[in-house]
């Protein structure tokens, strides 16, 4: 149940919009990432959004070592943030360098990145990106860590949704709009490939991305074709 005085909210928002305040989603997300990092004392934090190639790209990162997660996962084609995005649930590792789930990451990841946790950022119930944090020493993430990160991801989701609803024009907003527009068709294609090939969601996702790259098509276009073929 909501406990909001909508009349007071409406009057306050009308008052607020008389001042021409600047809106820049990338800057707002950077402030959130800085907050997460400082408040919880992690060694780094970042927000990734999916792009047209279904690569997770940073739209905000607190530091360069953390930013290496993006390039390392893109090169390895695997990693905790991809798993978070695909399965839509928190994924964490005490030490990513010795985690058997992502063996190819070790060679390409900055040595300062050890313990990693990621939570999905949901819009309309579907993941559009991830909030991820890391520590430079092995660390066992507990339920309170994950609960706080989920709450922050919820806050980020509301901020993103409000930015889209206000028709904010920026590269980040456009990227977010793409992620939102095509997430459902890609999710359905992943589900179809899982059933057809008897693989898990991450394998189906990687199969879809590889096929799109090999045929030089957008992942969303290929996903649409796959779904069309499946019903014809």
């Amino acid at each position: 149940m909501m406990h909001i005085d909508t009349e007071a909210l409406d009057a306050s928002l009308q008052h607020l919009r008389k001042a021409p305040y600047e809106t820049d989603l990338a800057r707002a997300l950077h402030r959130v990432v800085t907050s997460v990092n400082r408040v919880f004392g992690y060694d780094g934090a970042g927000i990734m959004l999916i792009d047209e190639e279904e690569d997770l790209l940073y739209v905000a990162a607190s530091d360069e070592a953390g930013r290496s997660l993006e390039q390392a996962q893109a090169r390895a084609g695997q990693g905790p943030c991809y798993d978070t995005y695909v399965v839509g649930h928190p994924v964490s590792t005490k030490d990513v360098r010795s985690d058997s789930r992502w063996p190819q990451l070790v060679d390409v990841l900055d040595e300062r990145v050890r313990a990693v946790a990621g939570v999905p950022i949901l819009l309309g119930g579907s993941p559009v990106g991830t909030l991820n944090v890391y520590r430079s020493e092995p660390y066992g993430w507990d339920d309170s860590d994950i609960a706080a990160l989920r709450a922050y991801a919820g806050l980020i989701g509301e901020l993103m949704a409000a930015a889209l609803a206000s028709h904010e024009h920026s590269v980040t907003a456009s990227q977010l709009q793409y992620a939102l527009d095509y997430r459902v068709v890609i999710e359905r294609a992943i589900g179809y490939l899982m059933a057809k090939h008897g693989v898990d969601a991450v394998s189906a996702f990687n199969r879809l991305r590889k096929q799109a790259r090999d045929s030089r098509r957008r992942v969303a276009d290929l996903a649409g074709e796959i779904l069309e073929e499946s019903t014809s």
Binding site: L13, L159, S166
Partner: peptide, 16 residues
């Protein structure tokens, strides 16, 4: 700070 970022977007949204 995050509340401020959210509120100015809600204000812009309510005007859009």
């Amino acid at each position: 700070g995050t509340a401020a970022d959210l509120l100015i977007r809600l204000a812009a949204d309510s005007a859009a």
